[in-house]
Every structure is written in structure tokens, then in C-alpha cells.
């Protein structure tokens, strides 16, 4: 463990907090790289980042289970409410109510089957996921179900990848050993920000155009 980290911990800061705050820049850079180099879209940088940490707080399988329940309930609720014309805010309130009931049912059932990891889930990560769901649902309205579902899937994948990085022992040791690595991330972020080449996904998207380019 580096001197810096030891110093911080000596000031009564929880090691978990130190690790998460030092890991956050890495996850953020990872998401930026996914977007700029590979071309995985996701809902901005905030959603996958927050979801990653929500998964970390709940444990992956429970986190994904809660996420899926929220997502499905939200989608079905929206689908039903589409037929009854309601104003936006009251409609969203109904959606959120149904989600709350569904999540409560899920963790109760989890507790009943001795899944205490599920039943003892703290409210914060659940709240985070509920907040995110509004974005997912409004994307369904704006971009159609297919695109929105795809975006949600991409966001979910990035968050799961982020979760595995967070729970990787070598990464945890590295971060606490070399906390100054975050300055290296700044350089990488800067370079990513200046990267004007095609994204990997765009090579695929524009493959027909590339064929037609004349190189002189």
C-alpha cells in the first residue's frame, strides 16, 4: 500500500471509500474508451458509471436481477399506460409506484428463499437504478423500443465489465499501491478527447463506403 493511501487511512477514511474514489476515474476512462475507440454507445457516461457502483454495492447477480426487474416493470408499465392517455408526470409516478412494488416483492421473495444478499440490499443502489430507469424509458419513447433496448443492453454490458474490473484483486491492489496512476488517466482521457479516427463500430457501419473510396 502506498504512503499516500496509508496517510489518508490514518485520517479515519474507510479503505473502501478510498478504493472506490480512486477506481472511479478508471471506470470513467474505461467508459470513454468504449465510446470513442470501440463505439459502444450507452446512455452517456453517468448511467454506466453509477450502475457499475450500484452493482458493486449489491453484488453483481442481485444487482442485475434488481435492474432487470426494474427494467421489465418499467417497460411493461409504459406499454400499458400508452393506451391510457395520461400527462407525463402522473404517468411517470404510476410507473415508479409499480417499480417500487415489484422491487419490494423481489427482495421479499429473495429473503424467503434465504437469499439474504438480496433482502438486505440497501436502498441507495436501488434508488440509483430507479432514477436511471426514467432515462431508459424516455429513450424507448424517443428512439423506439429496439434502439432503446439495445442501448440499455450496451449500458448493462459496460457496467458489468466495470464491475469485474472493480472486483479484480490485482486491480484493487494496483490502485491502492499506485494511487498516482490517476494522473496517467488524465493523459489518456486527454488523448481520447483528441481522437478523431473512426470507431471500430464505424469500420463495420461504413464498410461499403470504405470499399468505394479511391486512394490516390
Amino acid at each position: 500500500m502506498s504512503e499516500l493511501v496509508s496517510f489518508i487511512m490514518a485520517q479515519h477514511v474507510d479503505i473502501n471509500t478510498v478504493f472506490l474514489l480512486l477506481a472511479l476515474p478508471f471506470i470513467a476512462t474505461l467508459i470513454a474508451g468504449f465510446r470513442q475507440i470501440i463505439g459502444i454507445k450507452s446512455f452517456g457516461i453517468y448511467s454506466p458509471l453509477v450502475l457499475t457502483f450500484a452493482f458493486w454495492a449489491t453484488d453483481l447477480k442481485y444487482g442485475v436481477a434488481i435492474f432487470l426487474v426494474i427494467f421489465t416493470t418499467g417497460t411493461i408499465a409504459r406499454y400499458i399506460l400508452k393506451k391510457v392517455r395520461l400527462l407525463y408526470m402522473p404517468r411517470m409516478a404510476i410507473v415508479l409506484t409499480l417499480i417500487s412494488i415489484a422491487v419490494l416483492a423481489l427482495i421479499t421473495i429473495g429473503g424467503h428463499f434465504q437469499r439474504y444478499g438480496l433482502s438486505s440490499t440497501s436502498i441507495l443502489p436501488i434508488l440509483i437504478m430507479i432514477v436511471l430507469i426514467e432515462k431508459f424509458i424516455s429513450a424507448q419513447v424517443e428512439k423506439g423500443f429496439r434502439t432503446a433496448a439495445f442501448l440499455s443492453l450496451e449500458t448493462l454490458s459496460i457496467s458489468i465489465a466495470g464491475y469485474f474490473v472493480l472486483s479484480w484483486g490485482a486491480f484493487q491492489r494496483f490502485v491502492l499501491e499506485y494511487p498516482y496512476y490517476v494522473f496517467g488517466l488524465l493523459v489518456i482521457d486527454f488523448l481520447l478527447g483528441k481522437w478523431s479516427g473512426l470507431r471500430l463500430s464505424e469500420y463495420l457501419r461504413f464498410r461499403n463506403v470504405i470499399k468505394h473510396v479511391d486512394v490516390d
Partner: peptide
């Protein structure tokens, strides 16, 4: 090499936003 050279003629998201 030609693939990369050719792809430079295409406008991607990154270049559109940045340049």
C-alpha cells in the same frame, strides 16, 4: 494499410464532433 488509409476519408462521429 489501405484500409486505414481509406477509412481516413470517412467522417466518423469523433471527427465530426471534434473537427
Amino acid at each position: 494499410l489501405t484500409l486505414i488509409k481509406k477509412s481516413r476519408a470517412i467522417l466518423g462521429m469523433n471527427a465530426r464532433n471534434l473537427s
